[in-house]
Write a protein that binds this DNA or RNA. Sequence first.
DNA 1: GCAACTAATGCAACATTGTAGCATTAGCCG
DNA 2: CGGCTAATGCTACAATGTTGCATTAGTTGC
Lengths: 147, 147
Amino acid sequence: MPTPDVSPAAHLIAARGGRVTRARIAVLEILQDSPRSLNHDDVAARLAADGMPHDRVTLYRTLDWLVEQGLAHRIIGPDRARRFKAGGETRSQHAHFHCDRCGHVLCLESIRPEEQFALPAGYQPERAELVFHGTCADCGRQRGTKA
Amino acid sequence: MPTPDVSPAAHLIAARGGRVTRARIAVLEILQDSPRSLNHDDVAARLAADGMPHDRVTLYRTLDWLVEQGLAHRIIGPDRARRFKAGGETRSQHAHFHCDRCGHVLCLESIRPEEQFALPAGYQPERAELVFHGTCADCGRQRGTKA
DNA sequence: GCAACTAATGCAACATTGTAGCATTAGCCG
DNA sequence: CGGCTAATGCTACAATGTTGCATTAGTTGC
């Protein structure tokens, strides 16, 4: 059987024909471990916490590569910074929820906007992005909590 | 009757209690004249074309002021730049269409996403942003044209 | 295991978008 | 017209992302 000491993340990377570097494995695992999307700073902080700090540029390129390979996808946050999440585009159609209280971004994969709306004549949609803003389930429960 | 040589834009500005400056009038008229949203560069270019170039910072502040006063609203484009449009938030709920061909952003005021979706329990949406990506009616007609 | 090949990395410098501080200009009001 | 001060414009700066290039380190063939 295939060597079991190689992480699933490493397998995914190798399957794309890219080199299996520590940076890519670490970044992909960080994204996979997080239930919400992360920006560059978040990822950099976790890399540093794991004892493997990387250059800012490397991080940008690594994340771009993951997106290019379909191993992650990105959305633009309200602070005009990009946020990344593992798992590709989820068949290209799903909604997000931005929590205005804690700032987290979650994917609502059950909601598929494209199927629901009729656009004016002449418009040819290829992709729809539906983002809700409000309070997430976590923050709703702990109403008094700050952060 | 009230002096008819004052533009409607000037009236709107005066009604907010702000000073009626050439910059504000010009910027607001530019936004009102455009059927689609504009970024800072677009507005600056039109100001220059009208013979009244302004400082970049002034433009940022003028646009922020208009948003603050409810005379315009802004959205974040896919290039992480802000785009502005006259008319406030249109009752806070409407969709946008990003044309991937010409880069324009149009408002689809007839589509109101919030009314259509049921979120998972615990999520409290306050605002929904629905963005379609694809080809707009103009670009769809002139298929060969290179924008 | 070693050498070679080259993708990936890391550094420095730059680009774009947006902000802050402060002196000057110009609306507004009496 | 004169004074008050909001608005402007300049300079410098901050945050986010990109480019070029020398170095490092996966990978492959032997």
